[in-house]
């Protein structure tokens, strides 16, 4: 079993992540009045229905599209000199200093304690339709996977091939990939928890919830 205490200590030593905010697309940028050092919020509300703090607006084809903070944190760098200029997709417009939340610490620890099933090659991954439906409706933890089960569709070069799951039987505890995004070879796709370890995992989560105090 893994040493949760030392893992937590190492995370506590470096509790911040710095996350760049990039222009998701091209267009003319206008900043939304936030300043460096301002605190911003990510999407919140019970259903994440309230969008995050708006950092800028990028107008493309007469369509002003907001760029919102995707997580809470403090704006460390804001490239205000771009104001009113045309930006290319992927241009860094700000840097967010983000204090790890409880959930993120849990995710980091889960990633070390779950049985990971990794992407064999760089491609886009989807669940097979049956599983996809189940995941979308009742969450990934309602799905039990077995060795040899056809679980994914690998989409690459406009071709789709099925991918068979190999590994321990258990529920899909975590999903690490997003639809329509490429996954590098070797990156984890899902974290599986064998049924006999669920109690153990939940114990670890409870410990993190107690031990980790969220700074603001």
């Amino acid at each position: 079993m893994l040493d949760v205490t030392s893992l937590l200590e190492s995370i506590k030593a470096e509790p911040y992540t710095e996350m760049p905010v990039r222009a998701p697309h091209t267009g003319v940028i206008n900043f939304a009045g936030v300043r460096e050092g301002d605190r911003v919020m990510g999407p919140c509300g019970e259903w994440k229905e309230v969008p995050g703090t708006r950092i800028a607006t990028i107008t493309r084809e007469h369509n002003p599209k907001p760029v919102a903070a995707f997580d809470k944190g403090v704006i460390q760098v804001l490239n205000l000199e771009m104001e009113g200029h045309f930006v290319e997709a992927g241009t860094e417009i700000a840097v967010l200093r983000h204090y790890l939340s409880r959930d993120e610490v849990v995710r980091i620890i889960l990633r070390k304690s779950l049985q990971l099933f990794c992407a064999p090659e760089r491609a886009k991954y989807y669940f097979v339709p049956d599983v996809d439906k189940k995941v979308k409706i009742s969450g990934s933890r309602s799905v039990t996977v077995q060795d040899g089960m056809e679980l994914f569709i690998v989409s690459r070069m406009k071709r789709e091939v099925p991918l068979i799951y190999h590994g321990a039987e258990g529920v899909i505890y975590e999903v690490y990939f997003k639809q329509n995004e490429n996954v590098d070879a070797g990156s984890p796709l899902i974290g599986v928890c064998p049924p006999d370890q669920i109690a153990q995992i939940e114990d670890v989560i409870a410990r993190v919830q107690m031990d980790w105090t969220e700074a603001e």
Binding site: H25, T26, E61, F86
Partner: peptide, 15 residues
């Protein structure tokens, strides 16, 4: 220009 996708007409036209 760097754009987000070759499939997005909006990107091409704004460029």
């Amino acid at each position: 220009y760097r754009i987000s996708s070759y499939h997005d007409a909006n990107e091409l036209l704004s460029v």
